[in-house]
Amino acid sequence: MENTEKRRQELEKYFDAKGPFGLLRVSQMKRAWKQTNRRELNFWENTYLPMLFSGIYLTSKHFFYNVTFHILHLFGLRKDIKGAVTYQYPEMPRPLASRLRTRHRLTKREDGSPRCVACMMCETVCPARCIEITAAEHPDPNIEKYPAEFILDLGKCVYCGFCVEVCPEDAIRMDTGKLEIAEYSRESMIYNKKRLMDE
C-alpha cells in the first residue's frame, strides 16, 4: 500500500516536468506507460495535432534521408551510407554470429572416421528425442564403441544445442553455418551418419 503511494508521488513528479504545450516528453510517456497509470489527455493531446505533426515529421525525416541516399546511389555516390537497413536475403545473406547454432555436423578423426564413441549422452539429453544411435564395437580396443548409424531428425530438432554441450568427445558440433535446411518431404529432413559427416 505504502509502495503504491510512493510510486504515485514519483509519477506526479514526472508529470509536473512537462515539455512544450504541456505535453509529456517521450521518456516520460514511456515511464508512465511502464507504470500503467493512465490519466486524462490534456487539450492539445485531445486534438491529436501535436502528435500527428511529430509523427509525420519523424516518418518524413526517414523518407527524405533515405530517398536522398537512394538517388545518390543511382549516380554511384556515397555507397558507404545505406538507404535501407534490409538485407536482400537470398543474394545477400546476413553475416552470422560465430556462436549461432546452425545445422549439426559430426567431427572426424584424422583417418576420417567419426570421433563419436556412441556414448549415448546426446541421445539421452536431447529434449526433442530426435537422435537415434546404433552402437557397434570398434576394432580398436582403446575406443570401444563407434556409431554404426547416427540418425538426426532435423524436422524434430529444436536447436537447443544440448547435444553439443554434453558430448565428451567434441564429436558433434553446430557450426556449419547452414540455415536453409528446407526439404520437400519429412523423410529427407532425417540426416544419417553420412550426411552429417559429409554435407
Partner: peptide, 10 residues
C-alpha cells in the same frame, strides 16, 4: 515504395 522508404526498407 513510399512505405518501404519511410520504414528504411527497399
Amino acid at each position: 515504395k513510399q512505405s518501404a522508404v519511410m520504414q528504411d526498407r527497399i
